[in-house]
Write a protein that binds this DNA or RNA. Structure first.
Length: 719
DNA sequence: GTGTAGGTGGTTTTT
DNA sequence: CCACCTACAC
């Protein structure tokens, strides 16, 4: 077969990656080096040159968007539909496997996926049942801790026994949460992955079946895999060893969410003889931008090592704007965009990037007064909106009466006279009898445990749902949705509200009907689920675009994290100030500064033609003005690649190297120095991080091991 | 059941 | 400073 269409568009490194004979391959793909192309062409190569059946290929991504894009590009390349090929997100694929093997995985057939909002509510309910005070045990933190453990494949019973009351409480909450989910057939996001991993670990038949089925496994954004995901990938490819992983350690920015760059670093060890390919030619940015990004990321110690190069010209210098305050910053940015647009450029060729979402406000205000259309990324997605979740709550309850999260959500929405007292009784009954809220409700009524009025209200609710279930049995998904919205009174409820917000809610609900109309399930292999369940699972696993609005030509505002994977001719990286970027909270935790720097690298490498770096000398934060210090990342950009634009107001030139000088003077502490700590005894300085009073020192103590110390708080004595 | 005063917390986010 | 949540009063 002629494979020139697969190989011709590739450079040497890309071609090497694509044509490597089956076996473990690790592709270190720098920003803008054509990683998606390598992935899709690798699949094309396997199919057309190696003669491998598409059915034997599994391609895993992190986001639905990436998966869709890959599918589209493969179909384009190979010119055939890829329906039979398994391609999707970790969660999507694992969900599919769990549906097929629900019994072996120990789940009820009707198991339901809960999102983090549902999870949060559930944890609060458990806190209530355990009689724990939320003020002492913040549900968010417990949720975070539980997910953290799950992502490391640790179940409650794996936690070490502890004398610490805090640990014991965490254990109690985690264990009850697990029990609760198990009893009700609820599966959270991490559970989808963990269950699948355990299924593969414990069930040899299933493991071997899928190992044989997927002879070739490809993973995108490998640096973002967490412990469970990598363990599962290893299990899946244990017999074939055909794992093709593409990633970039320099773009690992989700460590705080459980991602383990180490997976990249240990790939070689786990797969001896693996082919390692570096993609270093960049096709995106002009020379100055690339040189600057290289220089910044070079400051990181923990790297596999890579240096991007380009055939493109140097292009424009990066521009540095020191604003007097955040309003000045925004005005400068918007003014610059105005002239960019006047020069005939599109507005959507521009991105305003920032470290934290709160920064978008000032830009929005300025864009608004300049009548410049814009779009802010982030915020709630379609299926996460309250009114949509309400409607889905009804549909879930119809689909499965025992869905407690749904029951709790809609039992009194719209208000139908079922108050907290009544609900508490039902909850209590459900807890003592170990039955679902639905069952508890009906038993509480038949046993006449409720006052007449409440009993009537609850009875009416149960009847409503039962009737809806009966009436919608043979309906199409669209009719069902429509029916639910109208007979539940939900639509009416929001229509009656006359706030602007409610108006949008009604529109969203109407949008849900058309989402139901247009819903086409991905072809499932052998397992058959009804359309409604598929729709509900899809809603949980694919929350939808940020805004389902039309593609207008508008300026793009987003956090640096959301910008990963995107590119724009003109990019503004704003709020480049110590404490904001790198963020204060990252300076306080070891190892996180390097992740902040990677974030900076990601931001810079989004720019194709022109990059602006901005900071404000005074920034109003939480109602208070703060004098800022330019981000250390600014000083890490070589002077040859950047030109400084003064703020019209005050401004003095950014003090180059100022930070570095301070670091040297204020710290006698240097790696290698011997110190004494009043509690931990003697040790040696391993690493230093942060400046001035934020300095953190990693010290290897001879008696207690390695610790992070903040000299500002704990006095260290030099030996 | 709805509205409002008072309190609190305020990186980053996909699934 | 502001957005969100909770508690409490009508």
């Amino acid at each position: 077969m002629d494979v020139s269409h697969i190989l011709d568009p590739l450079n040497d490194a890309q071609r090497r990656a694509v044509t490597t004979p089956p076996g473990p391959v690790l592709v270190l793909a720098g920003a803008g080096s054509g990683k998606t192309r390598v992935l899709t062409h690798r699949i094309g190569w396997l199919v057309q040159a190696e003669g491998i059946s598409p059915l034997q290929i599994l391609a895993v991504t992190f986001t639905n968007k990436a998966s869709r894009e890959m599918r589209g590009r493969i179909e384009e390349l190979l010119n055939f539909p890829t329906g039979g090929m398994w391609m999707g997100t970790f969660h999507g694929i694992c969900h599919r496997l769990l549906r097929m093997h629900y019994q072996e995985a120990g789940l009820p057939e009707t198991f339901e996926i809960i999102d983090s909002d549902d999870q949060y509510r559930l944890i609060r309910r458990i806190l209530g049942e355990l009689d724990l005070d939320e003020a002492y045990w913040p549900p968010r933190q417990l949720q975070w801790a539980i997910n953290q453990h799950k992502e490391e494949a640790r179940r409650a019973h794996h936690l070490p026994a502890s004398d610490d009351y805090h640990q014991q409480t965490l254990y109690r909450v985690y264990a009850s949460y697990e029990e609760f989910c198990q009893r009700l057939g609820l599966v959270d996001f991490a559970e989808i992955l963990l269950r699948t991993l355990e299924l593969f670990k414990n069930n040899q038949t299933i493991r071997e079946t899928w190992q044989k089925r997927f002879r070739h496994v490809l993973v995108d954004e490998f640096q973002d895999t967490n412990t469970i995901q990598y363990q599962w990938l290893r299990l899946l490819s244990a017999s074939s060893r055909n794992l093709f992983a593409v990633g970039d350690d320099d773009q690992s920015i989700y460590g705080w969410r459980g991602a383990r760059v180490e997976n990249l670093l240990t790939f070689e060890k786990d797969y001896p003889g693996a082919e390692i390919v570096r993609l270093e030619q960049n096709y995106r940015s002009s020379g100055h931008i690339l040189a600057a990004a290289n220089a910044v990321i070079a400051r990181n110690e923990d790297r596999m090592g890579k240096e991007l190069w380009t055939e493109a010209a140097d292009g424009n210098l990066i521009r540095l704007y020191g604003a007097s305050n955040e309003i000045d910053e925004a005005q400068f940015v918007v003014g610059t965009i105005e002239s960019w647009v006047e020069q005939g450029n599109r507005r959507d060729s521009v991105a305003i990037l920032y470290r934290s979402n709160a920064q978008s406000r000032v830009f929005e205000e300025q864009l608004l007064s300049a009548a410049m259309p814009y779009r802010v990324y982030g915020g709630l997605r379609f299926f996460e909106r309250a009114e949509i979740k309400d409607a889905l709550g009804y549909m879930r309850l119809i689909s499965n009466h025992d869905s407690d999260p749904s029951f709790e959500r809609i039992v009194n929405l719209p208000p139908r006279g079922i108050g907290n007292r009544t609900l508490e009784k039902i909850r209590e009954y459900s807890r003592t009898q170990q039955i679902s809220m639905w069952q508890a409700a009906s038993q509480v009524i038949s046993q006449e445990l409720l006052p007449a009025r409440a009993a009537g209200a609850v009875g009416a609710f149960l009847k409503l749902i039962s009737e809806m279930t009966a009436q919608t049995e043979d309906n199409s998904l669209e009719d069902l949705t429509d029916h639910v919205l109208n007979t539940s009174g939900l639509l009416e409820h929001y229509r009656k509200e006359k706030s602007e917000r409610a108006q949008g809610r009604v529109e969203n609900l109407e949008e849900l009907v058309s989402a139901a109309r247009n819903f086409i399930p991905a072809e499932t292999d052998d397992n058959e689920l009804d359309l409604l369940s598929l729709f509900l699972a899809n809603a949980a696993l694919e929350a939808g675009e940020g805004q389902a609005e039309e593609w207008e030509d508008c300026v793009q505002l987003m956090s640096l994290h959301s910008a990963k994977g995107l590119e724009f001719p003109l990019v503004f990286l704003c709020g480049m100030e110590e404490g904001l970027f790198p963020h204060q909270r990252s300076l306080e935790e070891p190892g996180r500064l390097e992740e902040e720097r990677r974030l900076c690298y990601v931001g810079m490498t989004r720019a194709m033609e022109q990059l602006y770096l901005c900071y404000a000398e005074i920034r109003r934060l939480y109602g208070k003005d703060h004098y800022t210090q330019g981000s250390r990342f600014l000083t890490e950009v070589p002077t040859a690649n950047i030109e400084e634009i003064r703020s019209s107001a005050i401004s003095r030139p950014l003090q180059r190297g100022g930070l570095r000088k301070e670091e040297k003077n204020s710290n006698e502490l240097q790696p290698g120095k011997q110190v004494r700590h009043e509690k931990f005894g003697e040790g040696m300085v391993v690493t230093l991080e942060g400046q001035g009073e934020h300095t953190r020192v990693q010290i290897h103590f001879s008696e207690v091991g390695t610790k992070w110390i903040i000299p500002a708080y704990a006095s260290l004595e030099m030996i």
